[in-house]
């Protein structure tokens, strides 16, 4: 006997008008495209491929012009897919010159959307992200620079940020501690310092009227400071290097918005708090240090912290009725 569900049903027949034509439960089947994240063998219609340094085939045609052409001979820059999110593709490439690496974010068209709606949305989102980044730059918030934008085609070229994510730095701390056991004495001082830096950075962001929308430790970078550089930290001859040196730089503003509402700021912090809880439970107890530094970073920050308590209480959002 087949294992398939055996369903015997009887339909309502008490004076009820027949509804939609009798369907049978079904799967709305779809072709499975062999999508692999590493893009090693995607069956596509186009012939424009390029071999990158590690000899992987990449379909560059999925990028809009001018990025569809292969690099000119003699140039070492190659375009590499870094990440494929729900909304956008992130590529590593060069922009303006072979020595200026950049993150190229491309929002491909979504075929399920009406084409007019799709174009409208893509355009709006590229512009929103670019505007937020430029605004942050103007106000001195540490974010990568916008190098170029094609809002009709759906791309934005952003300065590549060197350094590691806070996420990786925290994960790497254990190894670092093991290797530097003899010289390092700070207990958790390095972590506390990191938390303070994060709190200040988020405070600064909120102060200029921007909400990040997706604060996680993957979206916080530690950018190495060049000693003597404007705005960088004072390099101390006596303090040992820790995995948390550098300036906190915020990245990935794809969900960012311009807002000064306390509620929005509190939710921003709440997302970060939850991110710490789920990704770095072993340092979660130090998160209050983030909030402490945040609270002192601008006038009105303390009100946001109180709002944060409400947000926590609510869990997600209010219950739906019915």
């Amino acid at each position: 006997m087949p294992r398939a569900l055996s369903i015997t049903t009887h339909n309502a027949s008490l004076g009820e008008a027949p509804l939609t034509p009798e369907w049978h439960s079904r799967t709305v089947a779809s072709e499975t495209a062999a999508h692999k994240m590493s893009f090693t063998a995607v069956p596509t219609a186009s012939n424009s491929y390029q071999l990158n340094d590690s000899n992987e085939v990449q379909p560059l045609h999925s990028l809009p012009p001018p990025f569809t052409t292969t690099s000119s001979p003699g140039q070492t820059s190659s375009t590499k897919l870094i990440r494929q999110g729900a909304e956008a593709l992130l590529y590593y490439t060069h922009f303006l010159s072979p020595s200026l690496p950049c993150a190229l974010k491309y929002r491909p068209p979504k075929s399920y959307r009406h084409p007019i709606l799709d174009k409208r949305l893509t355009r709006a989102r590229i512009l929103a992200e670019a505007r937020v980044l430029v605004r942050c730059k103007r106000e001195g918030v540490s974010v990568p620079a916008v190098l170029g934008a094609g809002w009709e085609e759906g791309w934005i070229a952003i300065e590549w940020v060197n350094g590691s994510t806070v996420r990786d730095a925290i994960f790497g701390r254990k190894t670092w501690r093991q290797e530097n056991q003899a010289s390092y004495e700070g207990g958790e001082k390095d972590l506390v310092g990191l938390m303070h830096k994060i709190g200040c950075a988020v405070g600064k962001l909120h102060q200029v009227g921007v909400i990040h929308g997706d604060l996680t430790t993957s979206n916080l970078m530690l950018r190495p400071t060049v000693s003597g550089a404007e705005g960088g930290e004072e390099p101390s001859a006596t303090s040992a290097a820790t995995p948390f040196d550098g300036t906190i730089t915020l990245i990935d503003f794809g969900l960012a918005a311009q807002s000064s509402q306390e509620e929005d700021r509190a939710v921003d912090l709440y997302v970060l708090e939850r991110a710490f809880g789920s990704t770095h439970p072993e340092v979660e107890h130090l998160f209050p240090e983030v909030l402490k530094a945040y609270g002192e970073s601008y006038k009105g920050a303390k009100v946001v912290l109180r709002k944060l308590e409400d947000v926590r209480m609510r869990g997600r959002k209010k219950s739906m009725i019915g």
Binding site: G140, A145, E159, T225, V226, E230, G231, T247
Partner: peptide, 18 residues
């Protein structure tokens, strides 16, 4: 001039980036 230099390659300082 909030952002520090990238430390390697082209350094985009605040004004230039803006």
């Amino acid at each position: 001039n909030g952002a520090a230099g990238t430390g390697g390659g082209a350094a985009l300082d605040g004004v230039e980036g803006f």
